[in-house]
Amino acid sequence: MNIFRLAGDVCHLVAIIILLLKIWRSRSCAGISGKSQVLFAIVFTTRYLDLFTVFISPYNTIMKVVFLALSYATVYLIYMRFRNTFNSENDSFRLEFLLVPVIGLSFLENYAFTPLEILWTFSIFLESVAIMPQLFMITKTGEAESITTHYLFFLGLYRALYIANWVWRYHTEGFFDQIAVVSGVVQTIFYIDFFYLYVTKVLRGRGKMTLP
């Protein structure tokens, strides 16, 4: 554990809580991609199956359980509790375009050809593209509420801090996880364009982020 890892995990948690609170307080999930949230719930479920096989630390177990619970709570709020506020017509990203390549790739490139390893690899690859339905939705509608952009900012910050964590671990422990690092870098790239818009539009302006 290092400061970048810890800060990254905290940002991840903050992002998830921001989204959950936004939906709960406004009693609405307008502008939120339910598909991205379902993908994140699948990511956590397939990655944290090792909760049943290995024990790493109390921190690790607690965070995994919290992420799982919060991601399912988010999906519940979107599709059940506040489903009448959900803009399904704008959440039109075709999931098969993500799932088919990700499933294929996780069978081809993994550390061991065992169910748990393939599912872990699948979750890593899927996480790197899971935000795409949300970014697609913002591009389609041309705007995002500022609270949604704060959510995306913390999610992007979490990814950037994980890269700093890997640089740190490489230099101090000689640790290098090719699958996680490559997909992590790919994932972070998706946020760069958004980061630019966030700084120029949201932080310097006010209210909604509108695309040029």
Partner: peptide, 10 residues
């Protein structure tokens, strides 16, 4: 270090 040891990350 590769593979298995990565699993401490969330």
């Amino acid at each position: 270090i590769e593979g298995r040891e990565t699993k401490d990350e969330l």
